[in-house]
Design a binder for these strands. Structure first.
Lengths: 351, 351
DNA sequence: GATCTTTTCGGGAACGGTCCCGGGAACGGT
DNA sequence: ACCGTTCCCGGGACCGTTCCCGAAAAGATC
């Protein structure tokens, strides 16, 4: 056992030439005769030689590795996004290392330092909701490790960012509820420390304002992006003296918790309460009634984040940073569809 | 920019001592005076020194990295298992690199070679269903990279393996259907190239035999472990002249496809058709009616696979390999529960 | 005070590659 | 015959760290 992997030096020894010559032959430098090159390549193939990437890393100070920190890999939104990152990374010779922050600030800091210590070439992040500050990412940038954010971005850190038009998606979604005849529309927001939570809330708020509907404090509650928190908020909202006739949840996970509670309590969707989520997880279509949701292109977000990061790694152009805003797509299903209509904007005016 | 990270040599230069001395001070060798050790440690802390793991890797031929190949990271079963792997790996100073085979043999081979080239210290695998052969993993073992399988194991490769008692889980599940009064029980198996598919099928078959129920060819169909394939098989089964009154699906993903079709077609669960899945994904409880399922401890499987792998990496004890069999747990929900009874084995005898 | 042991440290090789520098051989031009 | 080019190749340095070996300094023993 312990078959020591064969090196360039071994090839050199067997052919009685220097290791520099072998090195030259293997990545076709011009300074080599056709004859020796063939001999080297032939022997390398026979010995099943593969270059040691660690030696390369040490020399070039490049690991061909990118890290990715997400709150939670179990969340299908993030696992899809990771799939997108993997897709472009592997096609361009990079490897992906995954870290979970479990939505904890401390863990996120540890992960970031780990990545720096490990000399990853770059990092893709969706921040933890409990992080009060993002200077641990700025530290990475200062040691020349570029960072790209997606979805849950940091406004503090200057870099490329990929997100969706959360505001408009929420606006459209809320307007859809209004068009369906809902007038008492509640909102379960995410943690207000996150950009996505604020933007979705603002979209909701402005849609209400546009249609002269009141924004009532007791109809706006905040939750973690989790099913259990969504369930708790649902109890809270339905216990109100003046009950909402629609709930717009800031994520599908929250909405799923709400969905469960509403059914437990015997409310009919959408007749008693309409329910709208955000992200359009693949599970959402399977609920009964199926959940309407503002769809996010999670895989594509991962892809674009990876492309921007590789751009940063390979070209080091840190002059002008870009914020890519992808489009959401309102997917209407049974949980909100009260009126079978043409769905054109004109019908909204009637309301 | 380009702040070059500080090295042991830099510390040595500033203190006017040799780099060997610095090295000794940093990992407290005994051959060092208390005085110089303190000076070194103090300066290292001030300069924010962190050792370069790449140099270590080159020297020790150890990367502190383990790879994991799963068919699909989107599958919650696998993302949970990855969470388990990450849990023990990180706590013991290892990093996790994720590869997706997308259930393709070619991709699985490429991934395996990638991992070998990258000099990972070990590999955890759940094999692709389309892999006719697993010698690419044996090649890894020959170059001293240990491999551990979980769930979808290879019978060809000798090593540690972690799985659940698929046979017994399927047996119990099928018996549960029988106890609920079902007599025409169909099975949608997974690809028969996989151990888990075969074992679950055998459990189903033997449970039928025990209760003197016929095993009818047209009631046993095979599918990929996907929702869409499950849906197709459901149409096929319900089109039969003699319809099944229960369907035991080899996975929850298949069962979810079936669930959707049964509702489309207007069948009531469990009155017209009872439906049982396998794995108990968190989504399954949210369906209407909620899906009964044979639960697998996915996170724990990942944990144990990682523990066995680290054992192999650190102790190189390749003498006796272990196959850990974890327990499944039948979770009964609305999709199969026709009879509210004590559920004790005695009631099964009546049938 | 001479010799021996112990403590403490420096020098260099090694890990597996890349790359720069310089040098020998072949060759052509004058 | 001499010199300048060009073509190939070998010899080292280097990346950051550990580890082995030897040596200087300090302390111990008689």
């Amino acid at each position: 056992m312990g078959k020591t992997s064969i090196t360039i030096k071994e090839i050199a020894r067997q052919l009685n030439i220097s290791k520099s010559t072998v090195s030259r032959a293997l990545r076709d430098s011009s300074e080599i005769s056709e004859h020796t090159r063939e001999r080297v390549i032939e022997l390398a193939r026979r010995l099943n030689y593969s270059p040691n990437p660690i030696a390369l890393s040490l020399l070039k100070n490049r690991t061909q590795t990118i890290g990715i920190i997400v709150p939670d890999i179990d969340n299908p939104f993030f696992s899809m996004a990771i799939g997108g990152v993997e897709d472009v990374a592997y096609s361009r010779g990079y490897h992906v290392m995954i870290y979970q922050s479990h939505d904890s600030y401390e863990r996120e800091c540890i992960d970031a330092r780990h990545i720096a210590a490990r000399r990853a070439d770059g990092l893709i992040v969706s921040v933890a909701s409990k992080s009060p500050d993002h200077s641990h990412f700025e530290e990475l940038q200062e040691s020349d490790i570029p960072v790209v954010f997606f979805d849950r971005i940091s406004e503090q850190v200057q870099t490329h960012k990929v997100l969706v038009n959360d505001y408009e998606g929420a606006f459209e979604g809320t307007e859809h509820l209004i068009m369906q005849g809902c007038r008492r529309i509640a909102h379960i927001s995410g943690p207000m420390g996150l950009n996505i939570s604020r933007n979705r809330f603002n979209g909701y708020k402005d849609a209400l304002a546009k249609h002269n509907l009141p924004l009532r404090d007791e109809w706006v509650v905040s939750a973690d992006y989790s099913q259990s928190d969504g369930a708790e908020r649902a109890y809270q909202l339905m216990a109100l003296r003046e009950r909402p006739d629609a709930i717009f949840a800031a994520s599908d996970r929250i909405a799923i918790g709400v969905h469960w509670v509403l059914r437990q309590l015997g409310y009919r969707m959408p007749q008693d309460v309409a329910l709208l989520g955000f992200s359009d997880l693949s599970i959402s279509a399977l609920l009964d009634p199926p959940l309407s949701s503002v769809a996010q292109p999670s895989f594509e977000m991962g892809r674009q984040a990876a492309e921007l990061l590789l751009e940063l790694i390979e070209n080091k152009n840190t002059l002008d940073f870009e914020t890519r805003v992808l489009k959401t797509n309102l997917v209407v299903r049974g949980s909100t569809l009260k009126i079978i209509n043409s769905g054109d904007p004109a019908s909204a005016e009637i309301l």
